[in-house]
Amino acid sequence: MKLKLMIDCSEASHYCDKAQYAEASSWERLLMRLHQRMCKLCREHSLRNGKLSKVIKDAKLKTLSSAEKDSMKKKLSDKNNT
């Protein structure tokens, strides 16, 4: 079996996305780095993608749970129909 070491940009960016959620395997991360050695665009994309992750993490956003949203919707429609 021949090992596939070369990946294209779309594959590299897919692994990069997975890496943002710590879901890329170490093999995938290795292939990604290898590709980025040769590809300036993907290096830049990866940097930007990482910054986006950091910014979202830093914002410490809170969301309402879907149950809480549903009860809010119910309240709204109840009042809307009366």
């Binding site: 956003l61 809170k62 309402l64």
Partner: peptide, 30 residues
């Protein structure tokens, strides 16, 4: 709701109160 919630929670610092205020806001909007 998430936008309003994040706006409210830093100002009232209480999950329940924030939710009530947002519901009231939607109702008043309606």
């Amino acid at each position: 709701s998430d936008y309003l919630y994040n706006y409210t929670i830093v100002r009232v610092n209480d999950h329940e109160v924030a939710q009530d205020l947002i519901s009231e806001t939607f109702l008043a909007g309606l």
